Amino acid sequence: MARNKYPEQTVEHILSVSAKLFIEKGFDKTSIQDIIQELGMSKGAVYHHFKSKDEILGAVMRRHFDRAAQMLDELVAYTQAANAREKLVRILEHSIADPEAHAMDRILSAQIKNPQFVVAGIQGGVNKDAAIIAQIMMEGREDGSIHTDYPVECAEVFMMLVNIWANPILFERTLPETSRRLTFLQHMMKQLGVDIVSDALIQQIIDRHTEMGGYQ
Rank of each mutant, 00 (worst) to 15 (best):
R3H: 05
R3Y: 07
V11P: 02
H13R: 13
H13N: 04
I14D: 03
I14G: 03
V17Y: 03
S18G: 01
E24Y: 00
E24R: 11
E24S: 15
K25A: 12
D28V: 13
D28H: 06
S31N: 09
I32V: 14
D34E: 11
E38F: 01
S42D: 12
G44Y: 10
G44A: 13
V46W: 02
Y47C: 14
K51R: 11
K53R: 12
L57Q: 03
G58S: 09
R63G: 07
H64P: 12
D66V: 10
A68H: 08
M71S: 14
D73Q: 14
L75G: 04
A77D: 11
N83E: 02
N83A: 08
L88P: 11
E93Y: 03
D98G: 10
D98P: 08
H102C: 02
A103Y: 04
D105W: 01
R106K: 14
L108R: 08
A110D: 13
K113N: 15
F117D: 06
V118R: 05
V119C: 00
A120C: 04
G121M: 08
I122G: 00
Q123T: 14
N127H: 12
A130D: 00
I133F: 14
A134I: 01
Q135A: 15
I136S: 06
M138V: 04
E139M: 02
G140I: 07
I146C: 07
T148M: 06
Y150N: 10
C154Y: 12
V157M: 12
L161P: 04
L161C: 05
T178Y: 00
S179C: 02
L182P: 05
T183Q: 07
Q186K: 05
M188W: 10
V194D: 11
V197D: 02
I202Y: 05
I206E: 06
H209W: 15
E211W: 06
M212Q: 12
G213T: 13
